[in-house]
Design a binder for these strands. Structure first.
Length: 544
RNA sequence: GCGAGCGUAGCUCAGUCUGGUAGAGCGUCACCUUGCCAAGGUGAAUGUCGAGGGUUCGAAUCCCUUCGCUCGCUCCA
């Protein structure tokens, strides 16, 4: 299986996507529009399978996650509170002399590329005035288009979860720790869309905000925090006792959980990179972030020549930053009342009480100071928060696994794409293009063929089999051309199974083969003989 | 947004330098053939050569503008 060079491979994938109806450029007949992509018939099925399986795994299969489907346009204040209005717009300066681009606030710290002894702000290059690059799409709500009407298309789905946190808490009968999941479109006016659909301006996110107790509350209730060794066992812990899990345990748990998800739809661990962001790379609100990267063909290589991977998902431990921000910005309380905490607190030693209270106070004070509260006010608020903790009230912390649906679709296509050698009818080796999708996410699950089209009995029987399977899975029926050609067409779009109705099915070779069909496996091209009556349960077992 | 390269049939591409009015392979469709792994037969459709403008008797070819793609700066689910 000779691998073409990576550029080649990516080109073949892009071309296959268009040729077979996975992905088209948006608005193509008008010349296209940069950073926007449409999914064709097969791509739509693929993406729907991804979304559905994510939803299935993250919410319906769990006791502790509830769903949300919020609007794309929300109150603009949300994006002030979240920090997107300010931090999503970096004024940039271009240097016409050296062609460099620099953040306007950093020109005094970055050396000039042409004359490194001087900083950019002091070099002789001819520079443009600072220009704002706000990555949020703006629109106006209502007929009057003035500043008061400005609204934004959401740049992430997460903020709606925080904004609706209290409503969901009160209506879902969930208690911390629990999560809120959402799948939906998000929009970023990327400077440079790149790498096929990888960096698009309109994309779909699959996000979970998993709310947990602050460590101080965990310690008050459980008496201790799960140790490093306990954390090492997280991967099998669903259903186990989690009362002593602090944020590190939950964070690690979700990293493992998410990697298992990727494995379960056919991305082997060696195609993924688990990247723990270094302290200096962390966003200001994050205590830890793990990126799950997939080794795309267009990924850069490290010094050893290994693909470094591109981000599919980020799993951030965001402390109580987001709920705090919305609490301050909206003036509405975002705290929860925790009966277990209230009951546990009076039973603690006074020294322990003091220690936990002090730690909570320090954390709140640090947050409030960082966000610019006046020192005396910050101190007062932090005292109040610490006092509330002793009564069972706190702001939940959050672990955020946030994945890109389109990026995952692209990763699955890249991962599935393969070329192998298969003999044609004369035994000559031919190149076969196969998308080795995991059956769970394959757009079409099974293709049904009559061996020959010109035999009405075969066609009739094949249509019966098609109709038998159709209510249960996506079936494709094809009677055109030679049987081998039909198999190959299905291989190219990743259909895992092929069912062929032949003369044995009609009973020509005797009663023992009557009403049996051949079931052909895409990857091995092996066939097995299966009774029609057993076909449905067999296939259902293999595609779930 | 800036710099470099590119844009011809559904896909991959030839033709562009040296203007004369568009081709190949694969694919698609129909009919025939078919006895389990695509390239048997016959026939068919498809391009205002990315778009717009200019030069010219004549532009896929030269010039300008614009849109899109690829790479770099920047950003990131």
């Amino acid at each position: 299986m000779a691998e073409a060079n990576t550029g080649d491979r990516m080109e073949k994938i892009v071309s296959l996507c268009k040729r077979r109806g996975f992905i088209f450029q948006s608005s193509e007949i008008y010349g296209g529009i940069n950073g926007f992509w449409d999914y064709g018939p097969l791509g739509t099925e693929l993406k729907r399978n991804i979304r559905d399986y994510w939803w299935h795994t993250m919410t319906r299969q769990r006791e502790d996650v509830a769903g949300l489907d919020a609007t794309i346009i929300m109150h603009p204040q949300i994006w002030k509170a979240s920090g997107h209005v300010d931090t999503f717009s970096d004024p940039m300066v271009d240097c016409k002399t050296c062609k460099g681009r620099f953040r306007a606030d950093q020109t005094a710290e970055i050396p000039c590329p042409q004359k490194p002894s001087k900083m950019v702000s002091a070099c002789h290059g001819e520079k443009t005035a600072p220009r704002a690059f706000n990555l949020m799409f703006q629109t106006c709500v209502g007929p009057v288009q003035d500043d008061s009407a400005i609204a934004y298309l959401r740049p992430e789905t997460a903020q709606a979860i925080f904004a609706q946190f209290k409503n969901i808490l009160e209506t879902s009968r969930q208690k911390v720790p629990f999560g809120i999941a959402q799948v939906g479109k998000a929009f970023r006016n990327e400077v440079t869309p790149r790498n096929f659909t990888f960096r698009s301006r309109e994309f779909e996110q699959m996000e979970l905000e998993f709310f947990i107790r602050p460590d101080e509350a965990v310690e008050a209730i459980a008496g201790h925090l799960a140790s490093a060794a306990d954390i090492g066992q997280c991967q099998t812990a669903l259903g186990n006792d989690q009362t002593d899990w602090g944020w590190e345990a939950w964070h690690k748990y979700w990293v493992e959980e998410r990697i298992r998800f990727y494995e379960s739809i056919g991305l082997p661990r060696q195609t993924l990179v688990e990247y723990w962001q270094k302290p200096e790379e962390l966003a200001h609100y994050a205590r830890a972030t793990v990126d799950i990267l997939y080794k795309f063909p267009f990924s850069k290589r490290d010094a050893q020549g290994e693909l470094m991977g591109e981000e599919l998902e980020g799993i951030a431990a965001r402390s109580d930053f987001d709920l705090s921000q919305h609490q301050r910005s909206s003036g509405k309380s975002m705290t929860v009342f925790d009966e277990e905490l209230k009951a546990a607190w009076p039973k603690l030693e006074p020294a322990k009480q003091a220690e936990l209270k002090e730690r909570y106070y320090q954390n709140r004070l640090q947050y409030l100071s960082k966000t610019g509260e006046a020192p005396d006010k910050a101190e007062k608020l932090a005292r109040e928060d610490a006092e509330a903790l002793t009564k069972g009230y706190y702001l939940p912390h959050v672990i955020e696994p946030s994945a890109g649906a389109d990026r995952l679709a692209l990763a699955l296509i890249c991962n599935a794409y393969s070329e192998d050698q298969a003999p044609d009818e004369k035994g000559k080796l031919e190149t076969r293009v196969v998308l080795r999708f995991h059956p769970r996410i394959a757009p079409i699950k099974v293709a049904v063929f009559p061996l020959l089209k010109n035999k009405p009995e075969l066609v009739k029987k094949a249509r019966e089999v098609r109709d038998l399977l159709r209510p249960w899975m996506n079936v494709f029926y094809d009677e055109a051309g030679a049987i081998g050609r039909r198999y190959r067409r299905q291989d190219e779009i990743g259909t895992p199974f092929g069912v062929t109705i032949d003369f044995d099915t009609l009973g020509e070779k005797g009663p023992e083969l009557k009403d049996t069909v051949t079931l052909r496996d895409r990857d091995t091209m092996q066939q097995e003989r299966v009774k029609i009556s057993e076909l449905l349960p067999l296939l259902l077992g293999r595609i779930r």
